[in-house]
Design a protein around this nucleic acid. Structure first.
Lengths: 229, 229
DNA sequence: GCATTTATTAATGCATACGTTAATTTTGCA
DNA sequence: TGCAAAATTAACGTATGCATTAATAAATGC
């Protein structure tokens, strides 16, 4: 627990923060369905708080691209179209490629890679039993580790925002996609390149990895006629 | 005026929107100085509105990285350190490089480039008389055109947020930097590559351009001991 | 029956009030 | 004089009320 986490533990969360987290969870879990509208008063009741923190939360969530405030119609939960997905992956590809490059440019000691190694191990184990849920958790953990290694807080927060935008689509396609063996391989190679300080290779491997992942996700959505998720 | 703009014209701006714009302007103009703290009540008086829209505005501006809400101390206007600047330019470089690539991948007709051409012309004219202000306006116009050509709304909004973060530093260094002849040249070459549909060249030129711009800005800040701007 | 006008309802942006509690000031003691 | 404890003040997160006005329902006219 670092200093920032300690500070958070020491004071309770504001209702605004709770509303942000709760609404986000409800969106990801499809309890607030893409395309649906919800009045402030409805969410206020649902969350057991007054309209003020709900309003504040929806402003933030709108800025994060998860919903749209429509005056007198409440908030509309934004569906994610295939072209949205394209946009998101273009951003993630650019920023994660840069993260890989940055990580490789640092002279980090072996300790820094422990969590990434664990994530890869976890992914391999999950793959051995085709446990897709565990694989997805490990995959996300690995990507987050990569971002942490890059040590650019702005890249981190942007990537987090966009991962939230596509979380539902990823969950939806988790069992529809082919076995992610290539992903595990890419991650291993990427980590090796980072350890070796080979920024160009790291950037290339990861950029291609993200381009492929985006294309695969989009093609699954198209194949199954999932126009909006 | 497109449909979105028409919609905005037809209804007046909320106080929250006015507060966002006004506070942002006061920050850029240094009327709210980096490092300074301002209570909600102070801003409320200054802007001539109640605390509610001011609170809403500060939540959004905090998410945009322009200020930090410090309970019981008001909002702290965030200074931008050299390492912040590094982070920002890493993001801008990644995303604008991708924007250049995307723009080149599209088969656009000559009409699409008119505004970019105008901006380059404006930059050349400004350079001829060393009119730095006009040059900066034209430079920003060109970059915005590039982003528009890329046609990825997410890249656009991220780039806008980060340009706001470094706006003050750019203004501060405008007269401290060498004559931006290389910039004009890069923009010309970039536009040619985009027109030719040469995505790799476009991405390379612009990425290097942005890397160089970031490095130059940072070195000026370091040279003049401008640790926080 | 349909279109238009009028009346009603309700959603929300905002102002204000209030309870909580962090920060500051005052008081008391060694 | 310095420090700790107690008292006071004020900042703010939130709840609530209100004015505005968009949306909907009802009434009217052809």
């Amino acid at each position: 627990m670092n200093l920032e986490d300690a500070k958070m533990s020491a004071r309770s969360k504001s209702n605004t923060e709770i509303a942000i987290e709760t609404i986000k969870r409800l969106i990801v879990e499809n309890e607030l369905q893409p395309g649906s509208n919800h009045l402030e008063s409805e969410l206020s009741l649902k969350l057991g708080m007054s309209r003020t923190p709900v309003r504040e939360a929806t402003l933030i969530l709108e800025a994060q691209g998860l919903l749209e405030i429509v005056p007198r119609h409440g908030v509309k939960i934004l569906p994610v179209s295939i072209s949205d997905m394209r946009e998101v992956y273009q951003v993630l590809t650019a920023l994660e490629g840069t993260a890989a490059e940055l990580a490789a440019q640092k002279s980090l000691n072996a300790e820094a890679f422990v969590e990434a190694e664990k994530a890869i191990l976890m992914m391999d184990e999950a793959l051995a039993t085709d446990d897709r849920e565990t694989w997805a958790i490990a995959d996300e953990k690995f990507h987050n580790e990569l971002i942490r290694l890059a040590d650019n807080s702005r890249i981190k927060s942007i990537v987090n925002v966009f991962n939230d935008q596509v979380r539902r689509a990823r969950a939806l396609t988790l069992y529809l996609r082919p076995s992610p063996t290539k992903s595990n391989e890419d991650h291993r190679l990427l980590l090796d390149a980072i350890k070796a300080g080979d920024a160009l290779t790291a950037k290339t491997i990861h950029t291609e990895h993200r381009v492929r992942a985006g294309a695969m996700l989009i093609s699954i959505l198209e194949k199954h006629k999932l126009i909006m998720v």
